[in-house]
């Protein structure tokens, strides 16, 4: 494992900790898209089907369990916890995420590394992760104001994707047979979705002002 991948995994973990902290400390999930969180839970469940069949490292298995458990915990909070549930902005979170799930699954049926149950679900999870942030970005754009923790959550998620791209470049240069088109192309698409957000995040950071996204 190289430093870029480790940095990517850590910023990913940090983003989830920030989100859990926000929900736990404020007992509120305002500004957070439940649809994005549900998509992430599906992403992790579909991707880590290999948890019991392919052992890579203790670190790898541990992180898989953490990602599955934390994503389910967030969805659980937003759906079941009485106070958190009340703060959910249903009217702002209108993205039709079922279409994303269907489209990604169809794409996975066509484009995969191998036509097996696990490989199709792995490809599906890669495609779905690439677009899972869309309901969150749309929600932020619709609400205009972004609170600090939600802004940091999206920032760390974007940083995680950026580090993964550096990781692939590093692996491509140092490993003789590193070619993973599905993951790399989807990863670049996913990172590009954050470009706009990053731009406004940087502006607000530079001016030391509250993050605001244009309508």
């Amino acid at each position: 494992m190289n430093i870029f991948r480790l940095a990517g995994d850590m910023t990913h973990l940090l983003s989830i900790i920030v989100l859990l902290l926000k929900i736990y400390a404020t007992k509120s999930c305002s500004g957070v898209s439940r649809k994005t969180q549900e998509l992430y839970a599906i992403v992790f469940l579909a991707r880590y089907l290999d948890l019991f069949t392919d052992f890579i490292s203790v670190y790898n298995s541990f992180m898989k369990v953490v990602f599955i458990a934390s994503s389910l915990a967030i969805v659980w909070c937003m759906r079941v916890h009485p106070m958190v549930r009340r703060s959910y902005d249903k009217e702002l979170d209108t993205f039709r995420h079922y279409f994303l799930i269907a489209a990604c699954f169809l794409l996975a049926l066509v484009l995969h590394e191998k036509f097996t149950f696990q490989e199709v679900f792995w490809a599906f999870s890669i495609y779905l992760e690439a677009v899972a942030i869309l309901p969150q970005l749309v929600l932020l754009q619709r609400s205009g104001n972004v609170d600090n923790l939600t802004g940091q959550y999206v920032f760390f998620l974007g940083a995680y994707r950026g580090f993964y791209i550096l990781n692939w470049i590093y692996r491509y240069l140092t490993e003789p047979r590193f070619t993973r088109w599905i993951a790399c192309v989807s990863g670049v698409v996913q990172t590009a979705l954050y470009a706009d957000f990053f731009y406004y995040y940087f502006i607000s950071w530079k001016n030391n002002s509250k993050l605001k996204l244009p309508a």
Partner: peptide, 10 residues
């Protein structure tokens, strides 16, 4: 040779 390696990333 088109054989998928194990997915070692998260």
């Amino acid at each position: 040779d088109g054989q998928p390696e194990t997915h070692d990333e998260l």
